[in-house]
Design a protein around this nucleic acid. Structure first.
Lengths: 143, 143
DNA sequence: TCCTAAATATGATTTTTATCATATTATATT
DNA sequence: AATATAATATGATAAAAATCATATTTAGGA
């Protein structure tokens, strides 16, 4: 469903949402350890997100990554789309080219409602929403 | 979510369910074309399913693959488990080792109900069930 | 029994994904 | 200005998934 890279990216963004601000930037190496992803790897992923304005950064001394208010309002889906591309989540579960709502494949027909629910959640939930879940104690970020 | 291999395997099994019987076996090369998967590839996948008794086969002249009544009652999940292993579908969506119902990660907390619905469907629906969907005209197998 | 047809076992190759390394560019501090 | 620090660009390597190829075994028919 989600690639490793996407999962890492989401973890990193959530970490930034909880631990950074424009005045308190975080370096790649200081994200790497708490989220348990190699630093060169997470740096690369964050760069892709910066390019698409989902994460903010400044380079040089005192630089680092952070999220501003605008960044916080991006959907989880937007992260996945940057890292995995649009196709991944929207392709037929049986890889049939001609599968659609009118002529659904058997898996489609069985799974489509729960599948749409997942896609809708990913589209509608923002980074900020997930942060709130954590702050409310409804969700956790162990390691 | 599902690997390419699993999707191919499901397609092949469904094709067999609709087009084979003990008296009417189908060779790998005759499955390959209609489901649009290379023959050496689908042969390999079917062999793994035969080993786990989800598909039946006999080799030699007049041999081929087929499904008997017992085979038809296997769940879709069982196919996926053979091809992708048990982990794939059951791992946390953020790859957190310590994610569980009591301490769910943010994605878990957002997606868990629809996710469980999908897993339950895959577990409860049998090959026969999907075939019925097709026979009733609720689902289609184009290409 | 011999030949042919098919699955099976095994492993090689290719492609994709994940991971690592390094040189370059930009920023702040001195 | 010079230096140190950090992201960025680029590309190399490693691992996994997907794909292809071939020799072996088994069954049926002549």
């Amino acid at each position: 469903m989600l690639s490793n890279s996407s999962k890492y990216a989401i973890k990193a963004v959530l970490f930034l949402a909880l631990n950074s601000s424009e005045k308190n930037k975080v370096m790649a190496k200081d994200i790497s350890q708490p989220i348990n992803v190699p630093q060169a790897y997470i740096a690369k992923l964050l760069q892709e997100l910066v390019k698409e304005k989902i994460v903010s950064s400044v380079r040089g001394a005192k630089g680092g990554f952070y999220l501003d208010d605008k960044n916080l309002n991006h959907s989880i889906m937007s992260i996945v789309n940057v890292i995995d591309g649009e196709k991944r989540l929207n392709s037929c579960m049986m890889s049939l080219k001609k599968c659609n709502e009118e002529k659904p494949c058997p898996l489609h027909s069985i799974l489509s409602t729960s599948r749409s629910q997942i896609l809708n959640s990913l589209k509608s939930k923002t980074i900020k929403d997930l942060v709130e879940e954590v702050e409310l104690g409804n969700a956790f970020l162990p390691l």
